[in-house]
Each structure stands twice: as C-alpha cells, then as structure tokens.
C-alpha cells in the first residue's frame, strides 16, 4: 500500500513536470538543394510548404480575389510578410566546415498556392558564393526554430540534396534531426 501510493505520487509528479517544454504551432515541410557551379558553392535553393492551417491564414489575407493564385501585387505583399522572419534568420543556418556563413539573405522569392492541398509553397534562394578549395568541404544547411514555435519536417532524402552540381564531386550527404523540431542537411563536396 505504502509503496504503491508513493510510486503513484512520484509518477504523477514527474510526469507533469517532465512535460514542461514548449510545443510547435506551425509546421513547414522543407526541401533544400545545394547548388554548385564552376568551383563555387553558389548557395541553397529552398522549398518550404507550410501546413494547411497556417497556409489558410496567409491565403485568406493575401489572395484577395480568391483565384488560388498570387498576382504580382499580392505576391509582393506575401514576400513582405515573409521577410518578417528576417529577425529569426529565416530559421536557416549554413555552415561550411563548421563555420557559420555570415548572414542569411533571401533572393528569388516566389510563392504559390497548391489549390488541391490548400497549402502554400515558398521557394527562395540563399546565396553563399563560396569558392571551393582543394579537399573535402563539409557544407550543412540547418532549418530550426530555437523558440519551438515552428516544427520542420522533410520528405527529402540524402540523394536529393545534390541535384544541381557542376564541376563538383559529392562524396557524402545526409539528413539528420537537429534539436527538437529542426533538420540538418549535409553534403561533402570536392572540387573536380
């Protein structure tokens, strides 16, 4: 009796306390592609598909004519909205041989509505322009929100990371969990 009650008490308490983490409220399916050209690591081309719930908010707010397409002026507003996460470095980190790339910038932003899934897909490019040197270059792209507001998922496999490579040999690639809800995509490149 003593043992049972004491054990139950301990289990109740530990169980409740152990759940003191935050949880995500928005989900993004991410698919990065490492882009190489002419001995340079040009950057990462990223595709993000937002969950249906979050997409609904953006579509309701920005697709004013409800034609399931963003006209140029609507797209400009979506892009402006997207840059609100600049302070969070677009939840992206790029590391080359373990060193952070100074600042995450966004180019070639585009957004489209997937009318059947009712989701929103953003595509953008993060430029790096790093000249590859002799030897292995370990390049990683991380999608993670340290505030645990956003969770990342991916259907991306390691083979799909190096679709755009010119004059570069890819020796190795991997997709790994990063922190609680992030992903790390890694590639080992070698100049030809």
């Amino acid at each position: 009796m003593y043992i049972r009650k004491t054990c139950l008490f301990i289990v109740f308490v530990l169980g409740s306390i152990n759940l003191a983490f935050a949880h995500p409220h928005v989900a993004i399916d991410t698919h990065p592609v490492f882009v190489f050209d002419n001995g340079y690591f040009k950057g990462v081309s990223v595709t993000w598909t937002w969950d249906e719930f979050f997409s609904d908010q953006v579509i309701v707010d920005y697709d004013k004519n409800e034609n399931d397409k963003f006209e140029p002026e609507e797209l400009a507003k979506v892009e402006e909205f997207f840059h609100n996460i600049k302070d969070y470095s677009y939840f992206s980190e790029i590391k080359i041989n373990g060193q952070d790339v100074a600042e995450i910038k966004i180019e070639q932003f585009s957004a489209k509505i997937n009318p059947f899934e009712y989701t929103l897909t953003y595509t953008f490019f993060i430029p790096v322009n790093f000249k590859l040197t002799d030897g292995d270059m370990i390049i990683s792209y991380i999608n993670n929100d340290p505030t645990i507001y956003i969770s990342f998922s991916t259907e991306c496999t390691a083979e799909g990371l190096d679709e755009e490579t010119k004059n570069v040999d890819i020796f190795d690639s991997s997709v790994k969990n990063h922190s609680y809800y992030g992903y790390q995509f890694m590639i080992v490149a070698h100049k030809k």
């Binding site: 590391k95 041989n97 373990g98 370990i138 390049i139 990683s140 991380i142 991916t154 259907e155 991306c156 496999t157 390691a158 083979e159 020796f171 190795d172 690639s173 991997s174 997709v175 790994k176 969990n177 990063h178 922190s179 609680y180 992030g182 992903y183 790390q184 890694m186 080992v188």
Partner: peptide, 18 residues
Amino acid sequence: PSGQPNGIDRGVKGDSLS
C-alpha cells in the same frame, strides 16, 4: 534530440531520418 551544431559529422552516404 540529436544535432551536430558544428556540422562536422559526416554521417553515411544516403543517411535519412524520414
């Protein structure tokens, strides 16, 4: 949770956590 903050874990070709 796992993570390689320094990006130096080379992993295995084709590693995927799906």
